[in-house]
Design a protein around this nucleic acid. Structure first.
Lengths: 275, 275
DNA sequence: GGAGCGCTGTATCTTATGTTACGTATTTTG
DNA sequence: CAAAATACGTAACATAAGATACAGCGCTCC
C-alpha cells in the first residue's frame, strides 16, 4: 500500500530516466515544499527543464501539475493536523529494517551524553584550545577516520595539529617530538589494538596528555588517559557503531572553535586568502 | 515584533472591514494551507469575492498574491524543519540542557531518515553488494573521513573496494580503471569541491554508477548520481555536521553486510586467519 | 431624509503558468 | 555498426490565474 507521495516516488524512482530521477531526488530532498512552487522554480532547482518535471509528475500518475500539487497539499494538511503522525510515520511499518538501527543509534547518543557532563566536555575543549603545545590525533582500524575528521577541523582553527597516519613505525617515530605540553587524542574501540595501546603508554610516559575516545568497556588506554570519553557502540548490526563518538567529536570541535573564536576567525580568513 | 503571518493577521484583524475579516478568519481556521491554494478557492471557502482576498492580502502588506504565498511557504518550510514544532521528543526528559548541539544532531538524523525510504537504502545496499565491478570511495575536505570509514568496513566483507586518497592527480588517474560495472561513492557537502564535481562528471561519462552523499542543498554532483542521499547538516556551530551522513553510512554498511552474510562470513574468517 | 463615503462584487483585462509539439541527442537493440 | 526507440530540451501555445476598473449598495453623518 502506498500512502504518501514520497513512498510513491521511491517506489518508482527505479523505473525513471535520469532527468526525472533528478527531479525526484530534488523533491525528496526538499519535500514537499518545492513541489508546491511553480514548475519553473521546481525545474530550475532540479536543474532540468519544465517538461521533464511535467513528465515526472505524469509518471507518478497525476493528470496534471495542479492535481499533483493538490495531492501534496492534502498530505501536508493531514500531517499538520496530527503531529503524532509525523513521529509515528517512520516507524509505522514495523518490519522496517532501518528504524531499529536508527533508534539504537539515537539511544546510544543520548546515553553517551547522559554519562558525559558539560564540565567534562568543557575541560577537554579548554585543553584542546590552549595553545601551549601540539595536538596529535590517531585512531584504530575503524576509528582512524574519526581522528582524521577531527584533525581536519582543528587544523583549520589552530596551528600544530597533526594526524598520525600510515605505518606504525612512522607514527612511533613522532613520539620523539611529543612532550608534556602536548595533547594526544586517541580513538580506540573494541577490539582494542595493541599497537595503539603501546603507543599511548609510551606517550604517557613522556608526559603527553591523552584524550581517549573509546567504547563503554573502555580500552586499556584509559589507564593512561587524562580524559576518557566512553561512547555507546551497540547497534543491531554486525558492526559496532562509532556514531556516538562521532557526535561527541563534532561537539568538541564546536566547543573548541567557540573558545578560539577570535583567533580562529582571523586564521580562517587568512586560510581563505591562501586559496 | 511580528514573526509569523498568523500574528500579523491577529494584529490587524481589528482594522479590517467585514469581508476581509471573514477572509482572515478563514485563513486562520485553515492555516496555512488555504493560503497556498488559488485566490478563487480561497475566496470560495471564505464566501467572499476574489478581489476581497486580494485586498486582504494587500492590507497585510504584501505587494501581490504570489508574494504572500511565498511568505507562507517560507514559514511552513521553517516549521517543517525546525525541531521546535516537533512534539514530544523522547529525549526531552530532563537532560535537554546538555547541549543544543546534541538535540540538533538528533533532529538532523530523524529528519534525514524521514526523507530516506527503506527501499532507497535497500537499493543502494543491493548495488553495493552485487559484485559485478569495483567500488571506489572518495570524499571532500571534511567528508573524506566518512569515505574512509565506509571503505574500511566494506573492504572487509568484499573484494575490490578502494578508497581514493591523496592528491587529485592520483585519483584522477584511477578513472582509467573505472567502467560501467563499477560504483563510485562520493561524499560532498557545502562548500562543494570543484575537483570532486569534475571527477564525478568524468566518472559518469565513463558509465560509472555514482552514489552521492550530500547535504540537503544537493551538490552539483547530484546531476550525475544514480543514487542521492541528502543529509541534514545544520547545527548550532560554526561547522556543518556530517553526523547524519555518518549514520546513513553505518546503516548502509550494515545492510550490505547482511546481504553478503554468507560470503562475508567466510571472508572474515579467512581474514582472521591471515593475522 | 438626502448627500457623501466606503465596502463589495461583477466583469474585463493581463500576465505568467502549465502544456504540447517537435527536433536533436542519446541510448538501446537487432 | 546501423536502425529504432527513448529521452530531453527549446520554443510556441493555450489556459487559468491574479490584477484592475467600475458600478451598485449600504451605511453614516450632516
Amino acid at each position: 500500500m502506498i500512502s504518501s507521495i514520497a513512498e510513491l516516488i521511491s517506489d518508482r524512482i527505479g523505473t525513471m530516466p535520469a532527468s526525472e530521477r533528478r527531479a525526484a531526488q530534488t523533491l525528496i530532498a526538499n519535500y514537499p515544499l518545492i513541489g508546491l512552487k511553480t514548475v519553473a522554480e521546481f525545474s530550475a532547482t532540479a536543474g532540468v527543464s519544465s517538461p521533464t518535471i511535467l513528465r515526472f509528475v505524469s509518471r507518478l500518475g497525476f493528470q496534471n501539475y495542479p492535481e499533483f500539487q493538490s495531492a501534496l497539499q492534502d498530505e501536508l494538511a493531514a500531517q499538520l493536523q496530527s503531529p503524532a503522525s509525523r513521529t509515528l510515520n517512520p516507524a509505522s511499518s514495523g518490519s522496517s529494517a532501518v528504524s531499529p538501527m536508527l533508534e539504537a543509534t539515537l539511544d546510544n547518543m543520548r546515553e553517551t551524553f547522559r554519562h558525559l557532563s558539560d564540565k567534562q566536555l568543557a575541560d577537554i575543549a579548554a585543553r584542546l584550545a590552549e595553545r601551549r603545545g601540539k595536538t596529535f590525533l590517531i585512531g584504530g582500524r575503524f576509528t582512524d577516520p574519526l581522528a582524521r575528521y577531527m584533525a581536519a577541523h582543528l587544523a583549520i582553527i589552530q596551528p600544530d595539529v597533526y594526524h598520525l597516519a600510515g605505518q606504525e613505525s612512522i607514527w612511533r617515530d613522532r613520539l620523539i617530538d611529543m612532550g608534556k605540553r602536548d595533547v594526544l587524542v586517541i580513538f580506540d574501540i573494541r577490539r582494542y589494538q595493541d599497537s595503539l595501546v603501546r603507543f599511548a603508554e609510551t606517550a604517557h610516559q613522556r608526559g603527553v596528555q591523552i584524550v581517549l575516545f573509546t567504547d563503554q568497556w573502555l580500552s586499556p588506554i584509559a589507564r593512561f588517559a587524562r580524559h576518557v570519553i566512553a561512547g555507546r557502540t551497540a547497534v543491531p548490526s554486525a558492526w559496532d557503531s562509532s556514531a556516538a563518538l562521532f557526535v561527541v567529536a563534532e561537539t568538541l570541535i564546536g566547543a573548541v572553535t567557540r573558545q578560539l573564536e577570535a583567533d580562529s576567525a582571523k586564521r580562517i580568513r587568512d586560510l581563505e586568502s591562501l586559496r
